[in-house]
Every structure is written in structure tokens, then in C-alpha cells.
Design a protein around this nucleic acid. Structure first.
Length: 257
DNA sequence: TAGGCCATCTGGTCCT
DNA sequence: AGGACCAGATGGCCTA
């Protein structure tokens, strides 16, 4: 792995260089108000909010010890965030078809060596995409079960119509996240046909249903993907998920409980 | 140049 | 007490 080309490591190196030993006070990430003893003697700092505990007796630390403690804490936090990013990258790999937008391949932080060209998925996009994919898988599983039921019933009775599955051909399964790039009307309509009920109340146009709190309430249905999205089409109007080409369509086939 | 995305620092809170 | 987690702040890089 090319360390220099990795923006994460590069930024880290910069930061480490900046906030190295003895240089804590006068650096971008170490603001002027920075006070390592604030843990002991809380000073009016930006981050302070109500509810803080200031009465807790703590051991006095020398400036060197405070600095060392601060570096240690920072290092832990850095490591934690790096682990989080590793997990995020692993998720991106699964969602990689979305990362291959042809536009703007020049960005140094767009992709890693060996990765497909195009803009890297943002964190929020990766998460929203993954969620959508999971919901689609669930829907496909549901539909498959339903069709299996049809098949077995047809074979058992032997008088019914030919199972629709055999006529239409193929399972409505998702072979991979790349299918999220396609117009998923087929998937969605099949899902809709299996679901009976009550669509949830309409969601505000300004609010992305993908980001709504209900786990199954706003399932895959309100979101339709278009292949045009991968080529840099308009973004989701919700302004939050920032995924290309969301359209919030109507009746949501609900994810069966 | 504005806005988006990101990494990092930091203090607070919760948990073991 | 120490570590994990979280959220706010800040500044850098990149793109439209």
C-alpha cells in the first residue's frame, strides 16, 4: 500500500507532525485555548456544556504527564476512527459498483491504488446504500419464499395454474449490489405484489425516507434507483443522503413483519 | 469561492 | 481508573 497516496495516512502524518511533542499549543488542531489541565481544572472552553463534573477530585499531573496523557488519548481516538474507516472501506468494497462514477477521477482522495476509478462513496452514502441493499435482500427473500409456496402448492394439487414463477422465469433475487444501479421496478413491483397492506403515511418530500427512524416502515419501496444516477445525475432532494437519483415514490410496499 | 467531505483534537459521558 | 464512544469545533483538500 502506497502510504503517500493514502489521504488518511497523509493527513495523519501531517497531524502527527503538527501536534508532535512540545508543539501542542500553537497548531490548528491544538487551539489557543487548549489546556491540558482542563481535565483537572475545567476552563471555559468551547466544548464545555452544562452538566459537567468539575468537583471530582483528581490527581495532579505535571505538564509533561498531561501532555503524555493527551497524546495517548488522541492516539486512541485516531486508532478508533481508523478502525471505523477500515470497516467503512470494507463496506465500500461490497458497494463498489456505486463508486465507479465516471466523473472526477482526478481527486487524490477519490480512490486507492487498484480501486476502480471514480469518486469514492462518502460515508453517509455508503451507509444509506448498504441499508437499501439489505432491505432489498430481505424483500427478495420474502418474495422467494412466497414463490416457493406457490410452486409447492401447484405441484401438490396438480390442478392449479402453472406457477407464475415458471412462466416469468427466474428468481427475483439480487445477485449483488450492482443491481442497485438498475431501475428496480421489477424487484419493487414483485415486492409490492407480495405485500398487502397499508402503506405508511406519506413522507415529506424534503425528508429522505431512507433516513427515517422506523426500521421497516420506510423500507426499500420509497426509493427507486436509476442507472442514470451513476453518471452523475441529480442528487436526492432530501439533501441529506446525497445519493444520486433518489426518487421518493409512492406507496410503499411494507416490509412484512 | 462556497460547500461537501474528511481527519483530528477535545471534553464529556458511560461502561468495565 | 482507564478505555470506548460520542459530538462539537476546526482546518485542509477537493469539486462545481
Amino acid at each position: 500500500m502506497n502510504v503517500l497516496s493514502n489521504p488518511v495516512i497523509r493527513a495523519q502524518e501531517q497531524s502527527l507532525a503538527l501536534c508532535g511533542p512540545g508543539s501542542v499549543q500553537d497548531l490548528p488542531h491544538c487551539p489557543p485555548g487548549f489546556n491540558l489541565s482542563s481535565r483537572l481544572n475545567p476552563a471555559p472552553m468551547i466544548g464545555l456544556q452544562s452538566g459537567q463534573r468539575s468537583t471530582k477530585p483528581q490527581r495532579e499531573l505535571s505538564p509533561e504527564e498531561q501532555q503524555e496523557l493527551r497524546r495517548k488519548i488522541n492516539s486512541r481516538e485516531r486508532k478508533r476512527m481508523q478502525d471505523l474507516n477500515i470497516a467503512m472501506d470494507a463496506l465500500r468494497e461490497v458497494m463498489v459498483p456505486y463508486a465507479s462514477s465516471p466523473s472526477s477521477a482526478s481527486s487524490s482522495q477519490s480512490h486507492q491504488p487498484g480501486a476502480p476509478p471514480g469518486r469514492r462513496l462518502s460515508k453517509i452514502s455508503t451507509l444509506v446504500l448498504a441499508r437499501n441493499y439489505i432491505l432489498l435482500l430481505g424483500s427478495s427473500l420474502q418474495e422467494m419464499r412466497r414463490l416457493l409456496g406457490e410452486v409447492s402448492m401447484g405441484m401438490g394439487v396438480n390442478t392449479g395454474p402453472v406457477p407464475r414463477l415458471l412462466l416469468t422465469g427466474g428468481w427475483p433475487l439480487i445477485s449483488g449490489p450492482s443491481q442497485l444501479l438498475l431501475t428496480q421496478e421489477s424487484l419493487l413491483t414483485s415486492a409490492a405484489s407480495s405485500s398487502s397492506s397499508s402503506s405508511t403515511s406519506s413522507s415529506s418530500a424534503a425528508k429522505c425516507s431512507l433516513l427515517s427512524p422506523g426500521p421497516m416502515e420506510a423500507s426499500l419501496a420509497p426509493v427507486q434507483w436509476s442507472s442514470a444516477g451513476a453518471s452523475g445525475g441529480p442528487m436526492c432532494p432530501c439533501g441529506v443522503c446525497r445519493l444520486p437519483r433518489f426518487s421518493h415514490s409512492t406507496p410503499a410496499p411494507r416490509f412484512p413483519k
